[in-house]
Write a protein that binds this DNA or RNA. Structure first.
Lengths: 190, 190
DNA sequence: CGCGACGTTGATTTGCCTCAACGATTGTGG
DNA sequence: CCACAATCGTTGAGGCAAATCAACGTCGCG
């Protein structure tokens, strides 16, 4: 199992000693997905947070009018889950789908909580990542309130060029909060 | 200094013993604000997270076109700050303004970090609150992407009726991502 | 090859914004 | 305690960004 990526990720926030690294590795499990395969579907309890070793996924849900709304993309070195469902260990409302063939490392909820209680340094790590995720979500929200569709696309493309290239256009459009047709027109005009 | 509210808040997530409660109280400071007074202005480094003992505040920024964008409201038992600025201890871009006369308890950044290192239970508490805040921000974002202006208003009013009653309408409109005039028309039509 | 998934393009519609003018309410100095 | 300014909210006219609808390309894959 290839764990160097996730260890490097964590070590960007906190320094793990050997005991802590071993304890972490002990609860990691690996999973591979084919293109279009679901890691999670609505109604399921999200038991894991998944770290992307290779590949590309997205989370989305089906709105009342039948349209898809993309919540998040995840490529190498990102985490993905139905976070609401994971946090409360309650049935969720999201799909998590592999856009390309994908390998993830999974952290199971109970085992992760136990790891945090045993080694508070992981509490600290997850605090830092949650705070960063919150700041990110707040920025995205602002961008949605403030910017035009064209600006949102250009900002996203500037910041995440590889995601723009790797995901279907209709998924990107729903992430950016616009119709697929309009994104097509934006791309033509810029 | 009235600390029972913030202690009760924390005890909803974790159980503090006497030593931990004392350590927390030692770093709390109190502050009062008049109506329209600023707790924070753009360019300042946000040194504190503020817990609202009484009153009502909002955070907002001035967009490129000169319009105000409200990020967050805070009433009794909520926290408020320029979280991006607080997290990175870098100059921020938000105003935090008292809507009514307000009293807050403040947690200073360095002291809070030290408290977390000394007592990992606070690491756990801030992890949980950050995760909850992230889930909340994600839900708000979805609501903005998916729902019409009228639906956003009705959902917000249903969930936070007291905030709707306590804040100026132009501030609520900018929080919900619509013009003040349009919110006025929505209110008339429902 | 042909079918299904994805993207493009144009015509039309609409939700919401902008601008402008006018009430209502609150606060403040004379 | 009144006058009159600010501040905040309301209403209507007109305009625009983006949605919707419909039809048609295009590409990869069974």
């Amino acid at each position: 199992m290839e764990t160097s990526g996730i260890l490097a990720n964590i070590n960007r926030y906190v320094k793990l000693d050997d005991t802590q690294q071993t304890a972490l590795k002990a609860i990691l499990s690996s999973k591979t997905l084919n293109k279009r395969e679901f890691l999670l579907e609505p109604g399921m309890i999200c038991r894991h947070q998944s770290y992307v070793v290779s590949g590309c996924l997205r989370s989305f849900f089906i709105a009342a009018d039948g349209s898809e709304q993309t919540i998040q993309f995840a490529i190498e070195d990102w985490f993905i889950s139905d976070f609401n469902s994971y946090l409360n260990q309650a049935p969720g409302s999201l799909y998590v789908e592999a856009i390309t063939p994908t390998t993830v490392l999974q952290l199971e909820y109970e085992a992760t909580e136990a790891l945090c209680l045993e080694h508070p340094i992981f509490e600290r790590y997850f605090k830092m990542t949650a705070q960063k995720a919150f700041a990110f979500a707040q920025n995205r929200m602002l961008s949605n309130l403030r910017d035009s569709a064209t600006e949102r696309y250009l900002v996203f493309k500037e910041r995440y060029p590889e995601i723009v290239e790797r995901v279907p256009q209709y998924a990107l459009a729903s992430y950016l909060g616009m119709s697929a047709e309009f994104l097509s027109k934006i791309r033509k005009s810029v």
